[in-house]
């Protein structure tokens, strides 16, 4: 049942604890939004999921496999910025999603032609086929993030990690990106972790919303304690479970 298991996770930088005692299990295909104040270890938690950092204690397992020691193919990532390669064209960026795992990082001959065809299909699906030969710097912020998500998905990761992917976008583009992401998700049934500052976004996109906060707060030394998951909302109810009707016989139905 549980696809991603996080067990008793601690992380400190030097003597400063960032997150402590994080336990959570996530089923395959779930969309997990992560919110919390700045400096509450959301991004640290994502880096731990990515295996970009090693936790001081505890472990993260994906699909029962041994804890990863470095970022790899099973975890895809989209950052707020610098998520696409500036020296590759849009098409080459998508191609990189498949070819970087090869010895020379490239495809040759017939294989390359097939991969290019697949890349063009992907580009058409994410609506970037008209800019295939341009460099990312000429694209708008929303298009760049769409490219970044497309590139990450081409590598077929088990888990997709999004670190404030829409943080730098204007509100209109943001809404478009929500639709884009929702659509992609229904197609791929991917397990997603998304860190965001936008509560509305968190509840709109997520199946569950994890809140990171400090449970203990030392007024003399605010950095003494780390943060942990303080709430685990079911986003289907908008985070307000007591308003769900459990009784369906002796109640008045409006609809």
């Amino acid at each position: 049942m549980s696809f991603v298991t996080v067990e008793n996770l601690f992380q400190s930088y030097g003597r400063r604890p960032i997150i402590e005692r994080v336990n959570v299990t996530v089923a395959e295909g779930e969309f997990i939004s992560i919110v919390g104040a700045s400096g509450c270890g959301k991004s640290t938690f994502l880096r731990l999921l990515l295996a970009q950092e090693t936790p001081t204690r505890g472990e993260i397992r994906i699909n029962g496999a041994a804890p990863a020691r470095e970022p790899g193919l099973d975890r895809g990532i989209v950052f707020q910025r610098y998520s696409v390669f500036p020296h590759l064209t849009v098409r080459e960026n998508i191609l990189a999603g498949e070819s970087f795992r090869r010895g020379w990082g490239r495809f040759w001959g017939a294989e390359r032609r097939d991969a290019l065809a697949r890349a063009d299909e992907t580009l058409a699906r994410i609506g970037l086929d008209h800019v295939a030969d341009q460099y990312p710097a000429t694209l708008s912020g929303g298009m760049q993030q769409r490219l970044a998500i497309g590139q990450a998905l081409v590598a077929r990761p088990k888990v997709l990690l999004l670190d404030e992917p829409f943080g730098a976008l204007d509100p209109g583009t943001r809404v478009q990106m929500h639709d884009f992401l929702t659509e992609l998700r229904t197609q791929t049934q991917m397990t997603v972790f998304m860190v965001t500052h936008d509560l509305g976004e968190a509840f709109k996109l997520g199946d569950r919303v994890l809140v990171f906060d400090k449970v203990r707060w030392d007024p003399q030394d605010p950095n003494l304690h780390g943060a942990t998951i303080t709430y685990d909302f079911d986003a289907c109810t908008g985070g307000i479970p007591f308003q769900t009707l459990k009784e369906d016989i002796h109640v008045y139905h409006t609809a």
Partner: peptide
């Protein structure tokens, strides 16, 4: 970020 991204692409 670019180096990490490349790693996640294998």
């Amino acid at each position: 970020e670019l180096v990490v991204k490349a790693q996640t692409l294998g």
